[in-house]
Amino acid sequence: MKKIILSTISIALFFVGCSKDDDKGEKCSTCTVSASGISLTSKYCDNGDGTMTVTTGEETNTVSMEGLTFNQFIAALKESGVSCK
């Protein structure tokens, strides 16, 4: 009985843990800059080719990461005081 329950839980966790339906495999971070009571939120998505897509409000631009990896870029934003998820 324990083996059946453990197997069922393992299979369920596999399907839940491996689902990529929501983000379609995109690597994205949402970051917010706050100053003088004003907040600006942008979504940064890695394109996998040294560029990223930056969306702020309804405007979207593709920009170069200037030789940085996506993780290095987001870490630099965080070090400068920007809040990222």
Rank of each mutant, 00 (worst) to 15 (best):
K2P: 09
K2E: 15
K3A: 14
K3Y: 15
K3S: 14
L6N: 07
S7Q: 07
S7V: 11
S7G: 15
T8C: 15
S10C: 14
I11C: 13
A12Q: 06
A12W: 10
L13T: 08
F14C: 00
F15W: 11
G17C: 02
C18K: 05
C18H: 09
C18Y: 13
C18T: 14
S19C: 09
D21W: 10
D22L: 15
D23R: 07
K24F: 11
G25M: 01
E26M: 12
K27V: 06
K27A: 03
C28D: 03
T32H: 08
T32S: 11
T32C: 10
V33S: 09
V33Y: 11
S34A: 14
S34C: 06
A35C: 03
G37A: 06
I38C: 03
S39A: 05
L40F: 04
L40E: 11
T41K: 09
T41W: 00
T41V: 06
K43I: 08
K43G: 00
Y44D: 05
C45T: 04
C45L: 07
C45G: 04
D46Q: 01
D46V: 04
N47I: 04
G48E: 00
G50L: 07
M52I: 02
M52P: 00
M52V: 01
T53M: 13
T53C: 08
T53W: 00
T53S: 14
V54S: 05
T55D: 02
G57V: 02
G57T: 01
G57C: 03
E58G: 14
E58D: 15
T60C: 08
T60K: 11
N61G: 04
T62Q: 08
V63N: 08
S64E: 01
S64C: 01
M65V: 05
M65F: 06
E66M: 10
G67N: 06
T69I: 03
F70H: 09
F70R: 08
F70Q: 04
F70T: 01
Q72F: 05
F73D: 02
I74K: 05
I74Q: 08
I74V: 12
A75H: 07
A75V: 01
A75K: 10
A76L: 13
A76V: 06
A76E: 11
L77C: 04
L77E: 10
K78M: 11
E79S: 15
V82E: 07
V82K: 03
S83A: 15
C84R: 03
K85H: 10
